[in-house]
Design a protein around this nucleic acid. Sequence first.
DNA 1: CCATAAGGTAAGCCTTGACTTACGGATCAT
DNA 2: ATGATCCGTAAGTCAAGGCTTACCTTATGG
Lengths: 101, 101
Amino acid sequence: MTYGIKLEALAPPTRRAIFERLAAGPSSVGALAAMMPVSRPAVSQHLKALKDAGLVSETRDGTARIYRIEPQAVAELRDYFDRFWDVALDAYKRSLEGGDA
Amino acid sequence: MTYGIKLEALAPPTRRAIFERLAAGPSSVGALAAMMPVSRPAVSQHLKALKDAGLVSETRDGTARIYRIEPQAVAELRDYFDRFWDVALDAYKRSLEGGDA
DNA sequence: CCATAAGGTAAGCCTTGACTTACGGATCAT
DNA sequence: ATGATCCGTAAGTCAAGGCTTACCTTATGG
């Protein structure tokens, strides 16, 4: 379960805000930057990080770049914490029953 | 959905390794440090961060401190990504059907 | 062909934070 | 009481990375 999860790429607040915004639908870089408290290059750099982590993908439309969420990546994150929950719950139950050292 | 999620506290690899180890069952600080590639104070500091984030709790047993996962926190993380997935999937479906601006 | 719009990239600043060593405070055994 | 164990905290170092400004490339429109 200690597998290649992209949590680190999602930790910075600004980056996660961008990612959450993209979950609501695709967007251009400029449109994203317009609603964020940081500069456009900063958004670009975050998008690059997200893309490198496989969390988003890019499409061109004229001079605009359209970024959208990569659903499979979200599914992996969900599955990761689902399993995490299972493991933790199982350990808790075992700690109640078989109280051996 | 942009609520107080503890992702940042879970991002550092060493810290996540500690957290994953604790998911398998409670442990003392020394036992944790023995299986990690960092010093014991480093583990202590990570545990403090996890505790501040509400991800783990602490119990005393003699001179030993026993740390264990806080199941509710894991549930919150799971729910966060579950909802994330729902939002992303819904947006994707809408992008297929009603293709209006 | 030229102007404009959109956005990636480079260089640099500066804070954050992960880690180490050194130390101090509790608790248990003798 | 004394030594030993277990652990948190302080102080300091050093690399990572988030952000900005400046610049360059690419694509559309007249």
